[in-house]
């Protein structure tokens, strides 16, 4: 993973009013002082073990080649950028992917217009490199940050211009869904990310008591918002709501994944 020291300060978020770089924080987000890990003693032993392992175990590369590991680390650093975090508090995003591919664990299905997961990650490298070459005449890894962002945005938008042979065999939407899904599973499963977004974390045996009005538990903290803008070198900050007040059902065929209910 790219460490902060290696990263240009131009890649850090800025104060939108002054335009000044915001110093990286041990804990970005609006819940300064909140720590789920400080509550470990209140969790059951099984949960504590699982979360501890996530926080303490050094990332291990078993399945991906060194280049592939580097490649996906770089891509994931665009999917979920962490330059607002101090280096020792950045979360490894590819270790889980490596493990999953090694033991050949899937989410329990594959789309018929998608190859097997291991193949997805192999073809993904080729397709992204092809897009990079097509747009900027160089492999993805050698491009500057902004150009890398633009290459990935083309896939995000579902409009790649190169590697049509690969995209014929692999849906670009589903590809995007998969890599985003893996990045999210790594980042938002980490207690540091819970602290960032103010999620209470594990809650057994101790329960929640304040269920209504978004009130914090005694050990949670109130939100303290601050303004920040994405670094100018990035193009990933704009979000587009797919559904305003009215949308058609066509979106069904494109995006569905994960599970609640």
């Amino acid at each position: 993973m790219k460490r902060f020291e290696e990263v240009d300060r131009a890649l850090c978020p800025v104060d939108p009013d002054t335009g000044e770089v915001l110093e990286p924080r041990a804990q970005p987000g609006y819940y300064a002082g909140f720590s789920t890990l400080a509550q470990r003693a209140f969790w059951d032993e099984a949960t504590r073990k699982v979360v501890d392992k996530r926080v303490k175990d050094a990332p291990q590369r078993r399945y991906l080649s060194e280049q592939a590991w580097e490649f996906w680390s770089t891509v994931f650093a665009h999917l979920i950028p962490q330059t607002d975090r101090t280096p020792e508090r950045q979360i490894n995003l590819v270790a889980g992917l490596d493990h999953r591919l090694e033991v050949n664990e899937t989410i329990g299905y594959r789309y018929e217009d998608m190859p097997h997961d291991r193949v997805v990650y192999a073809w993904g490298i080729d397709a992204i490199n092809a897009e990079a070459k097509h747009r900027y005449g160089g492999e993805f890894m050698v491009l500057p940050y902004r150009q890398q962002d633009v290459v990935l945005k083309a896939l995000h938008d579902g409009r790649p211009e190169a590697a049509s042979d690969i995209w014929k065999k692999m849906s670009v939407h589903r590809f995007w869904q998969m890599i985003m899904g893996d990045a999210i599973e790594a980042y938002y499963a980490h207690p540091w990310a819970w602290d960032e977004i103010g999620f209470g974390g594990p809650a057994y045996p101790r329960a929640y008591t304040r269920l209504e009005r978004g009130e914090p538990e005694p050990w949670e903290v109130e939100e303290q918002r601050y303004a920040w803008a994405a670094p100018s070198a990035s193009v990933s900050d704009e979000v587009r709501s797919v559904s305003g007040h009215h949308t058609e059902a066509g979106q069904h065929s494109l995006l569905d994944k994960g599970g609640v209910r």
Binding site: F42, R206, A207, T209, P218
Partner: peptide, 14 residues
């Protein structure tokens, strides 16, 4: 209750 009297406040409330 889960945690019983070891979590007096939570369990008295809930």
């Amino acid at each position: 209750k889960p945690g019983g009297w070891r979590l007096p406040m939570t369990n008295m409330i809930m």
